[in-house]
Write a protein that binds this DNA or RNA. Structure first.
Lengths: 347, 347
DNA sequence: TTGTTTTGCTTAAACGTTTAAGCAAACTTT
DNA sequence: AAAGTTTGCTTAAACGTTTAAGCAAAACAA
């Protein structure tokens, strides 16, 4: 039971009375090895239950075939779906992934990057924590010369490949949807402006309001950390206004759910009295009552494209400075919370 | 911009005109290196921005300081919380984790194990896919001589450390809770008996029913795959009975939510007409209306203990065959769906 | 003084692969 | 038959680290 001896290519070589180099080449189907020897090597390898030592080959070849992934939270449908699709593309190309989570903490994100670099990953695919403003640790990755690809939460200052949805356009689309449903006073519970994606959503909201000649009222535009509890708080603020809105567009499904709870508790009819739209297409949006209109971020696409971009970078030796900025179109998923029948509009 | 030369201990050695071995020892605070040399080495290491090559040291030392983790789905609150706590314990001990997901597929689980072994992980912490019945690939881990720790979804046949909650006792507790609320005809939408944890929940249900001298009616015990849709289907079956139940205990929150949707749609009052209890304490159970009574599985504890068990195994050279079977007590979280006021019981 | 211990380093081998270079034998061409 | 090419392997070095063993010099003991 004690020491299980590792089987190495040397052991295979000894059995067949050939050199370890020949074994290595046979296992890699080198053209300079005879078919007979290849067959013999593979047979013995199987017999001895040989498992290649990844560390040794990675060390020798100077690449680990590992890709580091950093997400704010695995526990979100969006990110877990992104990762799943990333993984399937990368696995097919012979890469494995190491997933780390930053928990939206800048500190943790820095440590994750150090960990990944230390583990000698061949590249990093990341979505930035909300807290992150200092980009020096990301520069560290670039200075190492390994590919860095950002998705969803990116930064334009950092000159790297990026995959995400068009937040500006999504926001614009949501506002137009609400206008089409007869809403005239549309509020936005948004994220903090310093985060690029939330800033874009705010801009999309404002521009759409202007384009359709609706009055822009500053009290209708609120910044929030977008968690469920804050959604509740901000919704209550909106309801306490002298002139409350007839539609609320919330930049995250979680906060939208909080808002919906408040509306339900106060017996305000959704969508008849107030229309509600969330963002992200979290599964629960189709489970609550009424179901919440939201925006799908194409997590599968994002994961797939991020992985493919990494592979492209790795496989093109001449590091072209031209960057991939992949902006996907999002999809509006209309559900009950905004699906107002125009003929029986109340008040 | 082209080739960034890697800094190695040799470079540091050259600068200081000492041997690489001395540098290595200095960096590890070996007692046989003078304080002066140590300081100089560390200074130069910082100046050159030296990053140790993990692959090389792992190869030489025969350990990678990586722990493989296999979960059915990262996208569940339970598993992501387990992993988060596991990670924090392991990071402190100098280990990093590689997360893989089986998506409940036996196939994928096998490939995950191969991947992890190939990556030379020092141990594997896993929760088995529902599909898994053949355990030979887990035996492969054991035969490699590296620690294997199972959590939540384990198997008694496999002689390994295990951390989970006491499903039997949890089930028992739920039934007693429902009885205390005046329920007399308690149904159970359970998982498949071949999965150990679901079998235990079924046993706990049956035994509690018997102990309290309630009639055990076979039509009230249903096996299900426990997803939301099947929860709906099974709930409808129960409602179609000649003599429907006055309480339903569902072995998963997702299926419980499906059941709740059906009850709401059919305007059956919960908890007044039927009490409902789920399992797992998924976040949405506190978000829907009415909120769902459920059981918390102590994901934090499980993650922490699993990690600590791994460290114990790694650090005790003399592989003691005595196994850790850590069975935690679960916690009943009583919410509206079962919180019936006994004085105004209907019918 | 001489012998012993401690200190502070060096040398060299090892971890398991990969791969450039080399070389004999077999085959092909002229 | 001589020269060249191809085939099929071997040798040896390398990847960057760790570590056992060795050895001078310094410090200490008698």
């Amino acid at each position: 039971m004690g020491e299980k001896k590792r089987i190495t290519i040397k052991d295979i070589a000894n059995v067949l009375k050939i050199s370890p180099a020949a074994v290595s080449k046979a296992l890699h189907d080198d053209s300079r090895i005879s078919a007979k020897t290849k067959a013999a090597v593979k047979r013995v390898a199987k017999e001895l239950n040989y498992q290649p030592n990844h560390l040794a080959s990675a060390l020798r070849k100077g690449k680990s075939n590992l890709v580091g992934v950093i997400v704010p939270k695995t526990n979100s449908n969006f990110f877990s779906s992104v990762v799943e699709n990333m993984e399937s593309v990368l696995n097919k190309a012979g890469y494995n992934i190491i997933i780390t989570q930053s928990n939206e903490s800048f500190e943790k994100e820095c440590r994750n990057i150090d960990t990944l670099l230390y583990t000698q990953v061949d590249g990093i695919i990341a979505s930035m924590a909300n807290e992150t403003v200092d980009l020096s640790h990301y520069e560290k990755i670039k200075s190492k010369g390994i590919p860095l690809i950002l998705f969803d939460r990116g930064e334009n200052d950092l000159n790297v490949d990026y995959i995400g949805i068009d937040d500006y356009q999504s926001s614009h689309m949501i506002v137009e949807h609400l206008i089409s449903k007869g809403c005239k006073r549309i509020a936005h519970i948004g994220g903090f402006r310093r985060t690029r994606i939330y800033n874009n959503r705010i801009r999309g909201y404002i521009d759409a309001i202007h384009e359709h000649h609706l009055p822009q009222d500053d009290v209708l535009l609120i910044e929030s950390n977008l968690d469920l509890e804050d959604g509740r708080i901000k919704m209550k603020e909106l309801l306490a206004l002298d002139h409350p809105p007839d539609a609320v567009y919330v930049a995250s499904d979680y906060a939208a759910l909080g808002a919906l709870q408040v509306l339900n508790e106060q017996h305000i009819k959704v969508p008849e009295d107030i229309c509600l739209v969330g963002f992200g297409n979290e599964p629960f949006t189709s489970l609550v009552s009424p179901t919440i209109t939201t925006v799908s971020q194409h997590s599968k696409q994002i994961g797939k494209i991020a992985a493919e971009t990494f592979l492209k970078r790795i496989n093109t030796k001449n590091w072209k400075p031209k960057l991939d900025k992949n902006i996907l179109k999002s999809e509006l998923i209309v559900r009950d919370s905004s699906n107002r029948d125009l003929s029986i509009k109340s008040s």
